[in-house]
Design a protein around this nucleic acid. Structure first.
Lengths: 174, 174
DNA sequence: TACTTCGTTTAGTAATTACTAAACATACAT
DNA sequence: ATGTATGTTTAGTAATTACTAAACGAAGTA
């Protein structure tokens, strides 16, 4: 007896849910994405309710987050008031999109606060051993963040971060 | 009046706490790391209790997680039963260490489940349009994960992932 | 041996986060 | 206008996670 498609979809969806949770997103988000990703046609909100067992409300808010990250796209059909959603199937595009999104996030705010610490210290400089030590450490962290930042910006700027670029990077690292 | 070091440390610690939370770790974890990172000398558990306001218990468990990730190192002094901790100051080393750790994690288990889906489908093959579609999509995701996996493995293998390597990568991406 | 000094574990609580159910808003159709 | 089919917001609940307090254990010391 062959495994039914529904079973396969369910397993896959569960897997993506766990991955989602692992990265700190709600597991429902992974599930929603999975359902869309495996659907040949765009789905309406109520279809997703059906497939995931979540409520409209939950899906409404979480799918907006997904859209903001560029992981799903919303579309409409003429003469049909429903919104339809489909998954972004190009994961490299998705990565770039997520990174772009992150640039205006809480994370960035926190990173900026490190920079602020630094300038504060420079303004009211005190010459002693501990001060120096702390300053150097904060500075090192700042430099690290800057490097990461350049990297993400470079990735975002690429029109196409595909497998070929990954291969290129692998070449450099070797 | 110059900003006191204690104030600066507190701000910095708060910043790292937020960053920690952003990445899905407890904020206490960021705080612990921050305190260690700004300390010129290794600190004992009770010192960290002092500086963070957390309890021994919390710190005990969270610092073990940090150690597992290679973000802090535990050491002892002869004739002193206390454990001392210090922060890993080389963030590139820390990244490699974290990636290494992740390879045996929940994440990997979930990723493997995608692979399993694939082999299940191959075993009980059904020839129809939807089946084909689903198979292709799952396969694409798998390929993506493989690429990511190669990348992280390459990074882990480097003895030294320093700023120079980051620069090299930036060059390739340009 | 009993007494200290440390780290760990555990059981319970506080805080946070994900989700539901239902009210609400909007826009179209009659 | 009134009704109907949609998506959104909101107020409350369930589930999860981070943490505390206190018991415990281990290992040294008197």
């Amino acid at each position: 007896m062959p495994n039914s498609l529904t079973k396969i979809k369910k397993d896959f969806t569960e897997g993506l849910s766990q991955i989602s949770r692992f990265w700190g997103f709600p597991k429902g988000m992974g599930a929603i994405f999975a359902v869309l990703y495996l659907s040949p046609t765009p789905l309406a909100l109520d279809d997703i309710v059906q497939e995931t067992g979540l409520t409209k409300g939950a899906i409404s808010t979480e799918i907006r987050a997904l859209a903001r990250m560029g992981l799903v796209h919303r579309s409409t059909k003429l003469g049909d008031r429903k919104d339809y959603y489909e998954a972004e199937a190009d994961f490299y595009a998705a990565i770039r999109s997520i990174l772009k999104e992150r640039q205006n996030s809480e994370f960035d705010r926190a990173v900026r606060s490190v920079k602020d610490t630094l300038t504060t210290m420079e303004a009211d400089w005190v010459e002693n051993e501990e001060w120096n030590f702390v300053y150097e450490r904060v500075q090192a962290l700042q430099a690290f963040f800057d490097a990461i930042d350049s990297l993400t910006k470079a990735v975002v700027r690429l029109e196409k971060l595909g497998i070929s670029n990954v291969t290129k990077i692998l070449g450099v690292l070797k």
